[in-house]
Design a binder for these strands. Sequence first.
DNA 1: TTTTACTTGTGTCAAAAGGTACAGGTTTGA
DNA 2: TCAAACCTGTACCTTTTGACACAAGTAAAA
Lengths: 208, 208
Amino acid sequence: MTEFDLLFKALKITEDPLKEKILDIGVLQDVSKNTYILEQGKYIKWLALVVKGKVRVWQENEDRQILLYYVEPIQTCVLSLSASFRDCKSIINAKAIEDSTIIKIPVRYISEWCIKYPSWNTFTTNSFIFSYEDLLRSYKKLAFNKIDKRLLDYLELITNKTNSSVINLSHSQLAKELGTTREVISKTLKQFEHSGIVNLKFKEIELL
Amino acid sequence: MTEFDLLFKALKITEDPLKEKILDIGVLQDVSKNTYILEQGKYIKWLALVVKGKVRVWQENEDRQILLYYVEPIQTCVLSLSASFRDCKSIINAKAIEDSTIIKIPVRYISEWCIKYPSWNTFTTNSFIFSYEDLLRSYKKLAFNKIDKRLLDYLELITNKTNSSVINLSHSQLAKELGTTREVISKTLKQFEHSGIVNLKFKEIELL
DNA sequence: TTTTACTTGTGTCAAAAGGTACAGGTTTGA
DNA sequence: TCAAACCTGTACCTTTTGACACAAGTAAAA
């Protein structure tokens, strides 16, 4: 089974003409770890579908960063999707954080396919819905929760996703996910340790 | 010209069968000021399209609120749109802040029409794109800007929209737009006045 | 082994934001 | 005209977050 077949299956693409189109137009590309896929201020020319690896999507401002989401197989970055509908510059960054494989589709086909192929339309609509609600939840948390609650939520999210109570992220990496500074994370984690919520080791946080 | 005709024109709905469907199924309703259209935690059964008036959409947490956006003619609340695609509870609030007129469409038709009618599909997709990017900009501001910058941005937004340098909002209303408290707004505005950025009167802020 | 880069801990201080309290102004409508 | 509801200003204090500084630990490669 090729990467394309995996894509078709995961995206529930059933129309043969659409499959042919994607095979014809899509470019399968390996991107090594730390390669930028989208950059703030640069034009978006391709819709990238991740078929292997992991892509981090975030916003930044001077020396701070805040995570938006991770794109994993089989997903697409909703931002590059939204850009596909109207020629514009990226307002986010996306970078492969593992060696990854993506399928690139020139943006001009995206909206055209929405009209021609119901399964493509369903895929794009679902991406928007999911992403919008996800961002909305993040927005609410950012607006109303203090950093300790936000950090704990994030740690719990990670442990749920990885199915392990151990988190191998440095304090500065956590700061960049949550839009704060390293020192704040270090101090908050120390508090958590005193409260018996976590165990701290070098580059390792165990959630109790 | 009826409200429905206005709707068709504004939404660029061209298909006659879709027009008939909307006329058949849509319910034209007057809602008086302060009527809730969506409430956090309650099921969404209708997609509401605003044809007259103004609807405020926000999130809340205990005694704080933060604005998401206003829905004006002819627009729809993207949240009720997203809910239309999957039976779910609202994670936001929406309330008419003027006497308004809406057209209500039961959610079960929304995704069906996306497939059948290209113009409807274009409308929903555009709503998602616009709203997603808008929320993303808000998220970035919330993450990286301090309250003085956020307040000033908001005041400028209002003056641009109303084409008037005078803003008739109380400090507590502003606090509810920005997710903070009345005192913080009062103090920040006083600072602005000292810096010669604004003139303050009772329930009136003049941006200089 | 030594260098280099990264990581963690923490003390001190400053800035930002929020909470409480109270005084007094404005508006509306009974 | 009086009361009630809402609005504004501000003093004082606390909590939260951030900035700076420095010490010390860890890992990996030269």
